[in-house]
Design a protein around this nucleic acid. Sequence first.
DNA 1: TAATGTATGTGAAAGTTATCACTTTCACTT
DNA 2: AAGTGAAAGTGATAACTTTCACATACATTA
Lengths: 219, 219
Amino acid sequence: MRNNSFDNVPESIVGRLASYHRCLKNAASTGQTVIKSSDISKLCGIKATVVRKDLTHFGEFGIKGKGYNIITLSSNIEEIMGLNTEKKVILIGAGNLGTALLKYPGFSGANFKFLAAFDIGAEIIGTSINSVPILHIDKLGAFLKSNEVQIAILTVPSQEAETIASQLHNCSIKGILNFTSAILKSDDGKFYIRNIDLSKELEVISFCMKKCLKNKEEK
Amino acid sequence: MRNNSFDNVPESIVGRLASYHRCLKNAASTGQTVIKSSDISKLCGIKATVVRKDLTHFGEFGIKGKGYNIITLSSNIEEIMGLNTEKKVILIGAGNLGTALLKYPGFSGANFKFLAAFDIGAEIIGTSINSVPILHIDKLGAFLKSNEVQIAILTVPSQEAETIASQLHNCSIKGILNFTSAILKSDDGKFYIRNIDLSKELEVISFCMKKCLKNKEEK
DNA sequence: TAATGTATGTGAAAGTTATCACTTTCACTT
DNA sequence: AAGTGAAAGTGATAACTTTCACATACATTA
């Protein structure tokens, strides 16, 4: 019943898989060996039936009446998500957000290797953040030629996003994580682009708060 | 046909409304007065039929054969999302991510007013970032008593998220934007919590890249 | 003022995703 | 070794979202 192709996996499931993965890593670090879908549910804030449905989409990883072996499930998820091979990452724009991401504890645990960060600020070129060297943006092209980078993270000012993105063609980069508010489009479909708009979150919370309060009044 | 209650609005629509809003703000700043759904589509990367369907959920804002009046549509979206009244915001944890958010250009444009940021770092207490004063976390309780804060943004280390969140009860706060990898739950339903996990994004992109490449090979 | 082009709005259908009740299987107990 | 409890897996159903084809109405032009 195991599905080895993983075609047509909805993004909703993928996002949750990432949550399960972190949750399993945390559980593993406490010495726990088995975990129930109801435990994952509590830890991730996702219903247990959804957890099970998601996992059965890829295979049968559990032991009925007992739960899931944490190590086994974790490595299965890693395989599914492509986390079992190291991904080489660069970051472009070492401002506050960029620096925050370089220091983010979650990244190192998931087989992502930051090779370098790029910026234009003379005072930081040559230094390093969390052992990742900061290079001048002028060196980007040459760096991409001599290194097999798979992912680029964009944390430059929005108005520069397009220009920088155009420099990422014709190299080994397959994915772009765009934290600028510019919407980048993968015109030729050569890479996968993920746009993340942080300021959107505040607007969404504004609406949801309004809704929450209204619903409460009605009750 | 106008729906004034806005109950049961799917979150998918809310997220897109925020995108439309930014897009309209940008368009307005160029002096443009009318915009078509196909224009919004290009700018936001969302299909024109979806744009129209989303908007009709709340009313009829367009002029057939012409498009949408930017000012009118923008203020309608602001009303729908609760952006027409100023929201008072505090930020807890003025590290790199916190600083990045305080400096984020998108926030100020959407009627969010940062009153203060809180931290424990002696060297930054008393200073300010982007005109937002940094106070010691010890002052949080008193501050919340004397200020009508609606939203708290959490950018503290994950292990401290729970502790800090527990201090936000019994005050005017209605929404929490949680950037730590801890999953906070609104146990009593008193506020709306939005968990944002940045490291999840890298894992998701890892899977999607894998899928993209596979699909390409098949073609 | 009538005709025409254009873009919105609408309702049904298709496609996704989540839910629920139920079955299956394993491990543990006695 | 049989029985019991507990949790995974399953398939049908329901709920939600997106898509599509088409109807509608506005504005502009002749």
